[in-house]
Design a binder for these strands. Structure first.
Lengths: 355, 355
DNA sequence: CTGAAAGCGCTAACAC
DNA sequence: GTGTTAGCGCTTTCAG
């Protein structure tokens, strides 16, 4: 019994002792902890001989630095917090991709949270991420409840809000006005002579940006003396099949439609697929307009209209702002970067009744 | 000069003093740091009165805990490392989504890294993430160079390899055999009577899984006494347009083709779009087979074949393994979870020459 | 149930 | 160039 207990103890001891620290590296290299520490980061004031010795020792004993401890000595860590509403929507994957791309080869690592378009959850996620004392934070959108804005401000770290420039801006922002994007597209469509325009969308609750595009779109129609011919909205995910179904419904209820504005490219593509089956000429008889300029918007080149957004560019620009503000002098001011979507109407331009 | 210096100092002091710590909470609540600490986590041995006092004080002074310091006292943090090859491919977004979903409402937060299918970079990313002393780690794939396997093993934390079950498994694994997936699909196609089968893929270097599917596919053809009629491979991203272009090329060079296997759904869909334009009957005259069962594989229901994979399920299962192993007794064993893809051939089944 | 002391692994600041 | 000292904010002992 006793022997076994001792054995267990020694095993446990071995596991605990396992953690290889800077001290071990220092001893193995025959220098002090400080010299080892300095040598392992970019050595400024360490002799070449010692740098070599330390790096060699570290590699040999398999030393893995402890960012936790290192960060504790500074006011914050080398983590960059990222809060996105969703990841199944590939738009945000592109954003995330832009962020990770910009953070490549830097000392920063993204810590990630998803809000699921839920304000409560978003608050909790942000709070949790702030507990890791990130050097900077990227959050999506400009519509936050007061409580969230409070902790964001109190964090006293560089903050970049992305995607949307319409609402409240706390610090820096990268994106564009979705209201304007919707407005501009409506103007462009009206210019091609289309007037009997409908809307079909998958705008889930709290997707403020899709709602803003729609609002801007309606505002432009209104200014031109038009209304939406029809207005369908479903709370769903499988957007291609939703587009297939709703375009059918819309066309039977409103055969006069000559254009439909969709909340995104997927649902517009779904509608196109259905129109191809029904042999409806797109865009000649019916223009279909999506949003984002994803790969799928080119499924049949020229057929779908869209606003091409630079998702990765937004993520990248946001991360770069943080890099500037976290590494450079703290004097760097807040920035506002607007990356306007590019309207692409394809064949619709060749078929405008005004030409 | 002197006055200014003092002023600057005092400003700096103010900023530094800014950090609100547990001590401040304790003082505000009139208890010791320890009582405050215990009260703020799930209090077991703290009087209800004190729990209330502490929580109230914390909220009032806007205290945000410091996970960095908390983690330093334990052997590792509440971070979960996640390393994926890529995020522009929506497959990995779905995986990530599954991971964050499973980590919701837990104390764990994902720390994220992208390898870009580059082994060097993957090694660096893993090493960097390990420096944050994560409680567990999720990595993609089963093909790692020796150096990477070494640090993975030395980390002594629960590890889950995802997506692929074919290669070297270090600890736990969630995914399926891509070799078998390719093999099974070829068998299924041969059973429908298709025999003049080609391959078109976007398999970038180090995308071991796509390569394994292709290898398994070829093995099944070989066993049945067949060869690939044609074999196109490009290193590109815009897969829809690649599919459009390559199917044209393949058909003019090999008009006898009755089936094409693609490396994924996007490129298969691109090919389908082109075939629709050319009025080629799919799948009657030409079967097109993708992989993953993404939304786009249903663009024209029944037309495309595919293997439906559960990406989110893989991410979720991997995260749950880590949760079990990080929170439960450490005695929990390694796990292997296989989530086989489901073959979906759509209209091809109704058109098989064997029926 | 509560508190005091010690220390997690590292680095800034100051000696030498 | 290099080493020593102190301490980041928290939690784990262990003593009340």
């Amino acid at each position: 019994m006793r022997g076994e207990a001792i054995h267990l103890l020694s095993v446990k001891d071995e596991n605990l002792k396992k953690e290889i620290t800077l001290k071990d590296v220092a001893e193995a290299a025959g220098v002090s902890k400080m010299t080892a520490s300095r040598a392992l980061r970019g050595a400024n004031d360490v002799s070449k001989v010692n740098v070599e010795k330390v790096k060699k020792a570290a590699k040999e004993i398999g030393y893995v630095g402890n960012h936790l401890a290192a960060s504790l000595t500074k006011t914050n860590s080398n983590l960059i917090g990222v809060v996105l509403p969703n990841l199944t929507n590939i738009v945000f994957s592109h954003v995330m991709s832009g962020i990770t791309g910009a953070l490549d080869d830097t000392i920063f690592q993204p810590v990630f949270g998803v809000s699921d378009y839920d304000e409560e959850k978003e608050y909790e996620v942000i709070k949790n991420i702030l507990s890791w004392r990130p050097a900077g934070l990227i959050v999506t959108g400009t519509n936050f409840p007061e409580s969230t804005k409070l902790i964001l401000r109190q964090a006293k770290i560089p903050l970049v809000q992305i995607m949307d420039t319409d609402g409240d801006i706390i610090d820096s922002v990268v994106g564009f006005s979705h209201e304007k994007a919707g407005y501009d597209m409506a103007r462009a469509l009206l210019e091609t002579g289309r007037e009997r325009i409908g809307f079909i969308g998958c705008i889930i609750e709290n997707d403020f940006r899709a709602a803003k595009r729609k609002a801007g779109f309606i505002r432009a129609l209104d200014e031109a003396g038009h209304n939406l011919v029809c207005d369908y909205n479903v709370d769903s995910v499988s957007t291609i099949s939703v587009g297939r179904g709703l375009v059918d419904e819309a066309l039977s209820a409103h055969p006069e439609l000559d254009c439909i504005y969709f909340s995104n490219d997927d649902i517009a593509a779904g509608a196109l697929f259905r129109c191809i089956e029904k042999q409806i000429a797109v865009p000649e008889d019916l223009a279909l307009i999506g949003f984002n300029g994803m790969d799928i918007s080119n499924c049949f080149p020229g057929k779908l209209g869209t606003s091409v957004t630079d998702r990765a560019g937004i993520g990248s620009a946001a991360a770069k702002i943080l890099l500037r503000r976290c590494t450079g002098e703290m004097s760097i001011e807040s920035e506002k970067i607007v990356l306007e979507p590019q309207i692409r109407l394809g064949n619709l331009l060749e078929n405008s009744s005004s030409s």
